[in-house]
């Protein structure tokens, strides 16, 4: 993976600039690309493998609670076009039979079958979307397992959307700015023509904050933590409750777990 787009360009330009010689060019101008060792801020939340646990039992449905969705979409400047065609969504709710179609069972409790479950990017351990991306615009962070999007590099081919078996990715079919009710200055909007999705609030983690949806859930149905840490809340929950993942048969190893 190229360190920076500039280096990539330098390689290209170095070849093109006959007579200059690529090497000295590269050396002379790559100096700033060897940055000082950054000090991670003390407050940043770090983990080896971030995961989320959704306790569907706790998730409120009677009064159609959408706090997690609203909050997430608000802090991430997710637009609302009001139509399913152009729709962009990071987290959303669907009936259980849609979220888990292969778990379909005629005699399932009505409660569960029609239960709205929270869906989001699974931040798979083995993400097909990352595999197919032709520009490495989406990649898996080695440090903490978050599947990230680089909106600057995405060419909008939507191959990742075809590859994602969970429908977790959205495309900016049109300029999102016009349909964001209140723009949050702390987070950029996207430009039309790129794919986006849940990023496990990477920008919040670095500030020492837990994901916005987890924070917003008044039913405490969401838990977020490090799977590699045996002491973590998520490990605790998973060890104590029966849980499932979406489409485990595909081998993608989702990192979002559902307690049913």
């Amino acid at each position: 993976m190229a360190k920076s787009t500039r280096r990539g360009f330098l390689k290209l330009a170095g070849v093109a600039a006959v007579g200059m010689g690529a090497k000295p060019v590269y050396d002379a101008f790559a100096r700033r690309s060897a940055p000082e060792q950054p000090t991670p801020p003390a407050e940043a939340l770090t983990a080896k493998r971030w995961a989320m646990v959704v306790d569907t039992r706790k998730c409120l449905r009677e009064h159609g609670c959408t706090d997690c969705i609203t909050t997430c979409h608000l802090v991430h400047n997710v637009p609302d076009f009001g139509n399913p065609k152009d729709e962009v969504k990071w987290v959303w709710k669907e009936q259980f039979e849609h979220g888990f179609p292969e778990q379909h069972n005629e005699f399932m409790s009505d409660d569960l079958r029609h239960k709205d479950v929270l869906l989001l990017c699974n931040h798979c351990d083995n993400p097909p979307c990352v595999r197919v991306c032709p520009t490495q615009a989406t990649w898996k962070r080695e440090a903490d397992g978050i599947v990230m999007m680089d909106m600057h590099r995405c060419i909008g081919c939507r191959y990742c959307m075809a590859a994602c078996p969970y429908g977790s990715r959205s495309f900016n079919w049109r300029d999102p700015r016009t349909h964001i009710a209140k723009i949050d200055e702390g987070f950029p909007t996207r430009t039309r023509g790129v794919v986006e999705k849940c990023n496990f609030c990477a920008e919040r983690l670095v500030r020492g904050e837990i994901p916005a949806c987890v924070e917003a859930c008044k039913a405490k149905a969401l838990a977020f933590g490090d799977l590699e840490d045996p002491e973590s809340e998520v490990r605790d929950l998973l060890s104590r409750h029966f849980n499932i993942r979406r489409k485990p048969g595909l081998g993608t190893q989702p990192e979002v777990y559902y307690i049913v």
């Binding site: 993976m1 190229a2 197919v132 991306c133 520009t135 495309f171 790129v194």
Partner: peptide, 22 residues
């Protein structure tokens, strides 16, 4: 079909051997 055709050269600037599209 590209959302950002102006970036099409990224396919070569950031070659991705795991991608059939590359």
């Amino acid at each position: 079909d590209m959302g950002q055709p102006i970036r099409i050269v990224n396919v070569f600037l950031h070659p991705s051997p795991t991608s059939p599209m590359f």
